[in-house]
Design a protein around this nucleic acid. Structure first.
Ligand SMILES: [Mn+2]
Ligand SMILES: [Mn+2]
Ligand SMILES: [Mn+2]
Ligand SMILES: [Mn+2]
Lengths: 251, 251
DNA sequence: TTATAGATTTAGGTATGCCGAAATTTCGCA
DNA sequence: TGCGAAATTTCGGCATACCTAAATCTATAA
């Protein structure tokens, strides 16, 4: 995060799990700690946080110390970080904001799904609870964002879809695209150009040898076959509805 | 402004008069310097800025020094502050953002005109140029905000309505409400309850003695008469269309 | 079992912005 | 013309958040 300064968002300090009086930096750290274990459950290390937040390791050490002081995180020296219940509530509130904003930008203002992440990353800290709820209302209270990520309800409830990373599925497995990581806009544009969107039917046709590309049939019936590289295969989740046996779900 | 910190908004540093890489603090100072002379032209003093921004005089001295360094303002010691052409461009860009946001919140998300100011005050620093232009497009490129304040065009053009403070008009003067200061939400709610809205026809019926209240006929034909106190009379501007003679327009 | 590479924390410093108190300057009025 | 009140600036400090370099700890691999 850049060092320039600004007031933190509105919202009463009291409302349960709302951003309240936390700085935008605290909000981002907590949100990143949460989302690091959303689609895989390796515990979050300090250096993983540093990498995601694009700051030095020492900065993470300092901020995590602060989060612990605020009662938002637990941390033993030289160990991974965990959220407290209070930190989890804040994180869910931020995630709700982020994903509702993305959804609003796509459906109400004609943004592409590759254009919304950065805008939401900033707005999430600024928008009031009232604005968020009005947007949710206007959208008919959606439960997932344009990338398939679940939108936590205002009360903190989340319904995580039962999906698996396509790169870990065995040949012959089929299902529909349930989620695509929005980390890389270029990748989103590429997948879009290949007709691989949310809810598209897909089937794992085969693996190229030596950890190479993954061949996937896209679309219903005959479909088209495309090859996904490592990065693509690590960004697409497939719902296990009507799944075949033999899925490597450990790790 | 509170001391918590956050990245400043997006937008290329280059685009003419766009927020670019200026901190939200710089953006607010420049905007306040601009709007201080928008409806009256006393030069802006340091203490006036401090009062509007709710910071100490010494803080203003420091920030103004910085604005001068950035080429956004001119300032001789112990004198009022002025914007440079570059500062004016930035200010107009911020004002456009603020007013377009207010307008969007009212027309697209059902906000009341008394609820939008604080929300816009924060969002103006965070929203991208792209989002602003999409909102403008969605609204049909409005030229004034819910309070009657003109919305500068993307190229910096402003069409300031020809209006006068109702408190300075002589008895018998009539016209339509062209602008109501949004500084005080309570006042906005009061005026709203009295049917005194934008474009409402009004006539100055009389002045109570000793600088007291102003009696105003509201609405067309018979209309209703209401008494406006000092604060109200200093917040309502009336368009001079079909004006009668005798308007105290000096000062 | 013990080096030692890698992860993490500590130490020392920078940049923003803001504050109160203490100078300093200006300007109206006696 | 000169005095003092008001406005403005200077000075010393604080809080946040980040960084680099230098410890320090942990865990793996001889
Ligand atoms: Mn963010
Ligand atoms: Mn998303
Ligand atoms: Mn503002
Ligand atoms: Mn307004």
């Amino acid at each position: 995060m850049s060092p320039t300064s600004q007031p933190s968002g509105p919202g009463a300090p009291g409302s349960p799990g709302s951003p309240g009086s936390d700085s935008t930096t605290v909000q981002d750290y907590v949100k990143v700690i949460y989302s690091a274990t959303e689609w895989q459950d390796k515990p979050v290390t300090m250096s993983a946080l540093a990498a995601r937040l694009q700051v030095a390791n020492s900065s993470v050490t300092e901020m995590v110390r602060k989060l612990v002081g605020l009662g938002l995180a637990r941390h033993e020296p030289y160990s991974p970080v965990e959220l407290t219940p209070s930190g989890l509530r804040l994180a869910l509130s931020m995630v709700r904001r982020h994903r509702l904003l993305e959804t609003y930008l796509v459906w109400e203002l004609g943004y592409g799904w590759d254009e919304v992440h950065d805008e939401a990353e900033l707005l999430e800290h600024t928008v009031s609870d009232m604005l968020i709820e009005r947007m949710s209302q206007r959208l008919g209270h959606p439960v997932r964002d344009p990338h398939g990520d679940p939108i936590p309800a205002a009360d903190g409830t989340v319904q995580q879809p039962d999906a698996h990373l396509i790169g870990l599925l065995d040949d012959g497995h089929r299902g529909t695209v349930a989620r695509i990581s929005d980390a890389n806009p270029d990748l989103l544009r590429y997948l879009d150009s290949e007709q691989l969107k949310l809810d598209t039917a897909v089937e794992v046709v085969g693996h190229k040898p030596f950890g190479g590309a993954l061949t996937v049939r896209v679309g219903s019936d005959p479909g088209r076959e495309i090859d996904l590289g490592d990065e693509s295969a690590a960004a697409v989740w497939v719902s296990t509805v009507g799944s075949h046996p033999g899925c490597n779900l450990e790790q």
